[in-house]
Design a protein around this nucleic acid. Structure first.
Length: 272
DNA sequence: AGCCAGGTCTTCG
DNA sequence: CGAAGACATGGC
């Protein structure tokens, strides 16, 4: 089916570092695995995307996943026409970036893995984890394509420390194990986080093993859609220091700082 | 080859 | 308290 939107760019989203299982398959075409589903998406035109899914899956999953009920136009135009030169360029450069609504547990585990790894390494590591601990499935829509779902909390909580060693997790293996056990035991109720305030959510997430302020903000932003979150990693920290001399004022972007952050991150990582 | 990666945890002063 | 050091592995 075809979707029309002025702010929906597959390449930018795939390279945005917020999701790790969206990859190019051929020119302008991407595969994506999320919520136990496999989908292929093609950028037909700047403002037109073709999805391989049924209308039912679109309405139940993908419309929500890509945050397509939200209009990014005003915010992105606001940035690209504002007075901040860096954000102007970032907004123009990354136009079509959106903040995805990903599964909370997958986001949590993915961003625990992300610490001190580059993005290709994160992707590889997650893929190994999925093949080893996820479910093998076949996509009907996409020519019998084989894929693996993201592991459940049970499967990772019950993984042996020995087996985890060979997944390339490094020292993060114990974080994954402990956090998955916390989720499984109910020490934390990931779904219930949706009822909490942003600040309280960050606090609860940080009780988990391997989750500090940065990962907590990423989970809040990409898994719970707190678009006021502003994760500061090494790249954003460099921007704040080098471009803004540590004087960046978030206040004008109150309530959607996460979108600003995403455009900053994409721009600094991908501009020549 | 050697540095660095979407940080966190522990230890030290 | 805040600052420094340790941490596993792989990509480039």
């Amino acid at each position: 089916m075809l979707i029309y939107s002025n702010n929906f760019n597959l390449k930018h989203i795939a390279d945005s570092g917020q999701c790790f299982r969206m990859n190019p398959v051929e020119d302008a075409k991407y595969s994506l695995i999320a919520y136990d589903k496999y989908i292929e998406l093609t950028q037909v035109k700047d403002n037109c995307i073709e999805l391989s899914c049924s209308e039912e899956d679109y309405n139940q999953i993908w419309k929500h996943y890509f945050d397509l009920d939200f209009n990014y136009e005003q915010i992105v135009t606001g940035l690209s026409e504002g007075q901040d030169d860096f954000l102007k360029n970032a907004a123009k450069f990354g136009n079509g970036l959106r903040i995805l609504k990903q599964d909370i547990y997958e986001t949590l585990i993915s961003f625990i893995i992300s610490q001190r790894k580059n993005i290709p390494a994160i992707k590889n590591c997650i893929e190994i984890l999925c093949v080893k601990y996820g479910k093998r499935k076949i996509s009907r829509e996409c020519g019998g394509k084989e894929y693996y779902t993201f592991p459940s909390p049970e499967s990772l909580a019950n993984a042996s420390a020995q087996d985890l060693k060979i997944t390339g997790l490094g020292y993060r293996d114990r974080y994954i194990l402990k956090t998955s056990q916390s989720v499984l035991k109910g020490d934390i109720d990931l779904k219930a986080l949706r009822q909490l305030s942003f600040e309280e959510t960050l606090k609860q997430l940080q009780t988990l093993s391997g989750v500090g302020i940065k990962v907590a903000n990423c989970v809040a932003l990409y898994g719970l859609h707190h678009i006021e979150a502003f994760p500061i990693d090494v790249w954003i920290a460099r921007i704040l220091k080098d471009i803004y001399n540590d004087q960046f004022n978030l206040e004008p972007y109150n309530g959607f700082a996460g979108i600003v952050q995403q455009y900053m991150f994409y721009y600094i990582r991908n501009k020549k």
